[in-house]
Nucleic acid binder design. Sequence first.
DNA 1: GTCTATATACAGATAGAC
DNA 2: GTCTATCTGTATATAGAC
Lengths: 205, 205
Amino acid sequence: MSNAEPHADDALEAREKILATAARLFAEQGYENTSISQVARAAKVSKALIFWYFETKEKLYRSALRKTLEPYFIDVDDLDGLDESAQITRLIELFAEFVRENVYSVRFFLSLMLQGERQPDEVIRRVSELYGVFRNLLADIIESGRLRGIFRQDCSPKLDAALIMAALDGVLIQNFLSDEFVHEPNELLDHLKSSLLNRLLAASH
Amino acid sequence: MSNAEPHADDALEAREKILATAARLFAEQGYENTSISQVARAAKVSKALIFWYFETKEKLYRSALRKTLEPYFIDVDDLDGLDESAQITRLIELFAEFVRENVYSVRFFLSLMLQGERQPDEVIRRVSELYGVFRNLLADIIESGRLRGIFRQDCSPKLDAALIMAALDGVLIQNFLSDEFVHEPNELLDHLKSSLLNRLLAASH
DNA sequence: GTCTATATACAGATAGAC
DNA sequence: GTCTATCTGTATATAGAC
């Protein structure tokens, strides 16, 4: 009876399995469209067990969101040794890559934040924070490039960073939407990189 | 009995009142979070009457979406007499204005399209179509400006139009999100206009 | 056309055996 | 810890009176 099966999913404790299943279903279908019964069926446990571990649907939801956020971070170490304009290119690529690797949950959090009006949620704060870090990093790089004379003197680090982020958002969101929006996903992203970078570089002499 | 009251809401036929109420509630709360009972209460009719007119909740929903889309169009006549760069500025302003005037429903449709996977809905198609018209108009203007030597010869009308749209989306979406994202809503929009226009204008001599 | 009353289904949540 | 059985509320939808 006390044999632990090292096989695939069975090796997960029931609690973990519930959590993983719930995270997936909530992200795919939203809170209202996902019932405890459905989670129970998919995780192959009884409804009662879910309530045993998580007490209410709301608490299960929060725990699942927290789990989903775990892989959310930016690894920014590999910017060393690059000049400012290469750093910006790299950051844009990192961002795009991150979104590509987390399509489902990013899409989910985005629609969460759009509905808004909700809880001043820890989750929302966490995502905002990450976004802010990214934008500030970008602004710092632009400022540094401006001081070193690589970028035009009349650029505005904070605004330019915000604009790049906005354009990036726009491009990536288009990939989420109906296919009719997308011309060539990567073509537009490349255009964004070169176009906005050139704008910064354009010498004023 | 056949007296028609010309007063405010009472003048609306029950059917219209149900439709208007439902459109508002669906847009504010989403489909799952809006019950027929709630619509009935808000529209001051009985649940049964709603089923009398619309048969199912699903059909009520579709009718309500169609009604919400009615004011969705762009009035593009006032571009006459402007040169290409002024036309672009004007178009950007029109787009921003449109979004500002339809915050609730735009936000709603956006989160609808994000959840995706749904019906290959007429609604989605309609919105995509409008968006496409806008982008193509922008591309045509850029092309025309390029031919007339106002814009740089090496610009790419379709890509530049797509980039402007993406940036515009990004900026406007930030206004939907948690306040922490917003620096100065209009400041960023202005920066977008001047920055991307300058990029097109930048002479190559 | 509009209502009240009711049928039916399924949601979240609990009790209690094992 | 995990289950079956059950409670309770509320949702969509229908029947039938007026």
